[in-house]
Design a protein around this nucleic acid. Structure first.
Lengths: 213, 213
DNA sequence: CCCCAGTGGATCTGA
DNA sequence: TCAGATCCACTGGGG
């Protein structure tokens, strides 16, 4: 991890001090085998207020575009008066302005992460570095294994479990499918819409999984 | 704004109660002239702990990919012991697991927002709705909203999710199976033992699910 | 999600 | 060429 010289000492310890991050408008730079070049911009809440006014921000945003992924790490918890005025600054900074700024960042494609303290930021950064080094991320697609009434699942339970991985099928409909086809639904390309509980829409959704559009 | 019926009353007041958001794996749905269909998933921190090992969550995540933009709104501030254990739950939930989950979400293309309380969430949501209604957002036109494979590829993800419901198949082998057969026209009665990573034993186990003993 | 243990697949070895 | 031994990737269970 490369750290900008402008960062406080505690954070400099996380990696090699270098001015390269600044070329990308970032404070930290991590290179990942999977996600490419990732830049992190750390902003304390008080700086953020300035940024939202400033036009310096637009320059930073533009240089961050060259990164594969750009992260904004926002440090500190905002406190608002009942009228939605910021409690941590003199200037006229409101909740809606703050949120608007965050929305803008998000929808521009920046990743947003937040911490409370600089210590937390440090921990987050090293966790992120470790995470980004990994060659493989299991992702979101896994499923737990079937579990039967008495621990070990039998064949039927496996089949129900398996089928209930289709969109629109829970265990009830999966069971209905199984009963309808009288066993494993060998007709994966058949018409499922006749199965009680499965309608046209669900059947269509499932068909797309098997056959494509 | 459409609000899922499962949300607490305070948040239901924000819009029209409807079950449509749930179809997209979301709790709230906002349609924007600029950004298209935006879904928001609200998660209290305590729920998040449970979610991390839930089969439902992965289905929700896949469903959310049909949205133009998917937001995760995380409610609550995590507190960690000096060893990195969560202070708000009994289970063994660690900072690194929590962060890993957030990183996964971010790099999968989900937008991350956080609040402290449900009240804050309400304010954020109405601010977001207002913000999304605007036709034009001045300020920086930064990164292209590079969505890449987002929004269309969910079919493959469904397939992986589905196949990994078979015994001996996780997301890795499920993907290998898809690649081997060149898509979903699976030869359910064919020989799977040739799939790289799937051997004789696993293939036999799977065959039994399809064909019986 | 992370961590860990056990299973089973892939690879290597030697005759 | 193939059985057997070794290694390592992946699954599966738990937190």
């Amino acid at each position: 991890m490369l750290v900008s010289p402008a960062e406080p000492p505690i954070l400099k310890e996380l990696g090699t001090v270098s001015s390269t991050p600044e070329k990308y408008g970032a404070d930290f730079l991590i290179s990942s085998p999977v996600y490419g070049l990732v830049g992190i911009q750390r902003k304390e809440l008080s700086d953020l207020v300035a940024s939202a006014h400033d036009d310096r921000i637009s320059r930073e945003l533009i240089s961050m575009k060259e990164l594969d992924h750009a992260i904004w790490l926002i440090e500190g918890t905002p406190q608002w008066s009942s009228e939605g005025q910021s409690m941590w600054t003199r200037t006229n900074y409101t909740r809606s302005r703050h949120l608007g700024f965050l929305f803008m960042l998000s929808f521009q494609g920046f990743l947003l992460l937040s911490t409370d303290t600089i210590t937390e930021s440090g921990l987050l950064l090293s966790a992120l570095e470790k995470w980004l080094q990994k060659e493989k991320h299991k992702g979101i697609n896994g499923r737990p294994t079937a579990r039967g009434e008495w621990g070990q699942a039998d064949e039927r339970e496996w089949r129900i479990h398996f089928l209930s991985g289709l969109p629109g099928l829970g265990s009830t409909r999966a069971e209905a499918v199984l009963d309808y086809f009288g066993g494993m639904p060998l007709e994966v390309h058949g018409d499922w819409s006749e199965v009680p509980g499965v309608g046209k829409k669900t059947a269509e959704q499932i068909r797309r999984i098997f056959d494509g559009n």
